[in-house]
Design a protein around this nucleic acid. Structure first.
Lengths: 341, 341
DNA sequence: CTGTTAGCGCGTTCAA
DNA sequence: TTGAACGCGCTAACAG
């Protein structure tokens, strides 16, 4: 299959390559007549611009690297990611941008890969889909002064790094207060990985709500677990060993909730009859499992859209009003909370 | 930030650009001594090869377009996708390949995008993460003779299209037989989108198992639904309206199972006490929900790895022994099946 | 409105 | 073992 280039079109039409190029760009200084002619020949010969060649000369790829947690991380299974990806994709598509997905299994592999993308100028910008404590990737990007935005709150340099986030502290407070308002007094917190900023913030909100309600925050009531089944088990077992058992739990992520609920059931505790439970994210699952989860809807899709919008703005040198873009949350009230009067 | 190119290194070291290029390629005809020198200067100046420039000259990008269902499709929420992506990524990483993710919301957008990737020579190959009936994308790729592999079984041209698949007919048969062996006689089938080849195959297996057991296949017992909640509801309602209610259900996808189980519970039917249920995929969830699902483990991760391996083989002109690559399945026995003696 | 010229940064002949 | 020259396919100055 012969490759059709701009030159071929030039030859056939009798115009110069630059004219052809202008037709492609739909340059206004080209007469409609020539445009017609040129386009006809393009169709005929099946011409299509070579993106790589164009990228080389314009020094831009219109491609953004989208970085997920390293794939060894269990949290990758979280439907959260496909949902942000959907959001990002929808905006990218309309702006004709592409997403290059990271694939590293370990932190180190991921780092190498990002280095390759960035230093090799294979992407114009980066979207980080998570925020961790002491992330070398962030340091690297900052040092290189490379355009990037983060979904979630940076652990450092909050007013230098553009990020799209929920007010997770507020969200944690809101959902805990919902429990309080429904008469719950002994509220436990089960969080995911403790080095995730999002976990920290939600926990902070939980603590704030308790304090404001005059309820002391007890260390025993706060548990950290992984996304693994055994983790869910341990968390539940820890709770069951408490002298005074909680009447409600705030879980930092819907996915963990699923495990926790099923563990509780195994120990004969039903949600919400015996114990109430709320969590965060409002992934598709939280609505279809039994009981349907009362959870904070953080609008994952919008997080994706806005981060896409932000990175494209940065890459196209538009002004960005704010470093911190907050997506509002709301509570999806469902059936995992019992009303204690 | 000044861009460091091969020429800069050439200037500083006193060698010619072509020598530098050879050092990068680690060409054996360059003396170790010069290599050392050149590399030292590269480090010093912070040189990194420009991937776009390289891609242009070698006429290859070492990136593969990975195509998901259009993002309007609810099935995208299925953790299946992140899991294949993990598999693909792990192999790509080790071969230094990149993944370009599709983002189209509608079928048409997706088609346009693929056209752009392919015609614009922005990718060396394509992996299709689904298989539908009458897919124009497949026709396009076939017609252009563009390298691609499919995860799942093609609806047409089975022995022309390279694809990585499970033996879903066998899987459907196996899991149905498991039900049969446990004493179930009235077995219903709930399938996802009816134009997905995978649904069709699993149903075929279900029917085969029934026939071989001498049980007539009843149209009433076969229901198709979407991934939506309402769909799950309708499916369950249809089942409950049956004069003779089934004692077990084969569901074509774990994600649908979740909805079905929760609907059943809403109607007072517990799994497996009142009705047994089995399904397919063995996503992370199926293990942590209650009851833990007895499901066909199709090894999603491996599907990803093998499809990655295949597309890279094709793109690097290696010989591929088989068009059809089958990933073996096995049954993960858990707690959603009751034994009727 | 259109053509000429010059690169973008790199790999690869061919010659030395 | 190294260098000069060319070209990948395209855009963008500068001319006219």
């Amino acid at each position: 299959m012969k490759i059709v280039t701009i030159k071929d079109i030039a030859k056939v039409t009798g115009f110069s390559p630059s004219t052809i190029s202008r037709v492609i760009a739909n340059n206004s200084r080209i007469s409609e007549e020539t445009k017609q002619k040129v386009r006809a020949v393009m169709d005929e010969l099946g011409y299509h611009p070579n993106l790589t060649a164009r990228n080389l000369v314009v020094q831009s790829t219109k491609t953004i690297g989208v970085i997920m947690p390293s794939s060894a991380d269990k949290s990758l299974q979280n439907p959260f990611f496909t949902e942000v990806l959907r959001g990002i994709g929808s905006y990218f598509h309309q702006k004709q941008f592409s997403m290059l997905l990271s694939s590293g299994q370990t932190e180190e592999e991921k780092f190498k890969e990002i280095e390759r993308m960035v230093l090799g100028k294979y992407v114009d910008g980066i979207i980080l889909l998570y925020s961790r404590l002491n992330d070398s990737v962030v340091d690297f990007l900052k040092e290189k002064n490379f355009p990037f935005v983060m979904v979630g709150k940076p652990s450092e340099y909050k007013d230098e790094i553009v990020h799209v986030d929920n007010d997770n502290i507020k969200a944690g407070k809101d959902i805990t207060e919902h429990l309080l308002e429904n008469g719950h007094k002994r509220i436990s917190f089960i969080g995911g990985a403790a080095d995730l900023v999002v976990t920290i913030d939600r926990q902070k909100g939980y603590e704030t709500a308790l304090k404001e309600a005059g309820i002391p925050v007890s260390e025993e009531y706060i548990i950290h677990t992984e996304f693994l089944k055994s983790g869910g088990r341990e968390a539940v077992e820890q709770i069951l060993e408490l002298k005074v058992k909680p009447d409600a739990i705030v879980v930092s992520d819907d996915l963990i909730s699923v495990g926790v609920i099923s563990m509780l059931e195994e120990y004969g505790l039903k949600v919400p009859e015996h114990i109430s439970l709320v969590s965060f994210n409002n992934i598709y699952f939280s609505e279809i499992i039994h009981p349907a989860l009362t959870t904070v809807d953080i609008q994952i899709y919008r997080l994706g859209v806005e981060s896409a919008k932000a990175i494209i703005q940065i890459c196209t040198n538009q002004v960005l009003n704010e470093k911190r873009i907050i997506i509002p949350h709301c509570i999806a009230y469902r059936n995992s909370v019992k009303v204690i009067k």
